[in-house]
């Protein structure tokens, strides 16, 4: 540790307790989510190769790491990481939200934005939407496995096809994907900025482009399966 050259710094200033540290944690967990959704989306697209490919893929995930890890071991490690990341991400989001509210206790009579994207201003509501979606999604596909048509629940492929056969289920998913796209659009850029990778105007432009690409690819990629199922291409 470098010696502090001054005696007048804030006493006991802990970098680890700062808003920026919370943001770094958000960015880190967010980055993990990005990797996850990319992989998850890729997995979903297997649906286009048919039932067996899709179910084999799900099975394959559980066999990953064997025999080094027990069956489903990798999956559980990954799940643990995701759960921790989620707790961190949501915790930080709540703390920062509260701080921001205290930092602007009185609203302006008139307020005009000039430089911010819609996505950047809706991170919190978008995040909340995603959280609600996630709860439903897990009930739907993993934890309880709710088949809205009352059909089979032990065949992942079938569960999915049944689910998206219901138009309003598809709608819920599409809405969630819109929220995800927005969250990623700003989140990607924001994470790059939070991690200090955007020190020049050029790198900022790159980060913004990455946000666009990820948003379109992920939200678009996820949306394909529900849409094609609804219209009967996948069945």
């Amino acid at each position: 540790m470098t010696a502090v050259a001054t005696s007048t710094l804030v006493r006991g200033a802990r970098a680890s307790r700062s808003t920026i540290t919370l943001k770094i944690m958000m960015a880190g967990s967010g980055a993990l989510f990005i990797l996850y959704v990319l992989a998850h989306m890729y997995g979903n697209l297997k649906a286009f190769s048919g039932e067996s490919a899709f179910n084999e893929y799900a099975e394959h995930l559980r066999e990953l790491g064997q025999p080094l890890l027990p069956y489903s071991g990798f999956l559980w490690l990954f799940r643990a990481a995701l759960i921790i990341a989620l707790v961190v991400h949501v915790y930080a989001a709540v703390v920062l939200w509260k701080r921001a509210q205290a930092a602007r206790p009185v609203k302006y009579e008139v307020s005009k934005r000039r430089n911010s994207s819609f996505s950047s201003r809706t991170m919190r509501w978008g995040g909340l939407t995603l959280l609600l979606f996630l709860v439903w999604h897990l009930l739907n596909f993993t934890i309880v496995k709710i088949n809205p048509t009352g059909g089979e629940t032990n065949n992942p492929y079938q569960l999915m096809v049944d689910t998206f056969g219901v138009w309003w289920m598809t709608l819920i998913y599409l809405a969630a994907m819109a929220a995800l796209g927005l969250h990623l659009h700003h989140g990607t850029f924001s994470a790059a900025q939070t991690l200090g990778w955007t020190n020049t105007a050029a790198s900022r432009t790159r980060a913004r482009t990455a946000g666009w690409v990820l948003a379109v690819v992920v939200a678009g990629g996820f949306s394909l399966v529900p849409l094609f199922t609804l219209f009967g291409v996948i069945d």
Binding site: L9, A13, S116
Partner: peptide, 23 residues
């Protein structure tokens, strides 16, 4: 030391965190 201390003071003053909104 400077950045750690100044960020701590920024937070203690009650300013919000940055969401990189850009306004």
């Amino acid at each position: 030391g400077r950045v750690a201390s100044m960020v701590a003071q920024h937070d203690a003053e009650g300013f919000g965190g940055c969401t990189n909104i850009g306004e």
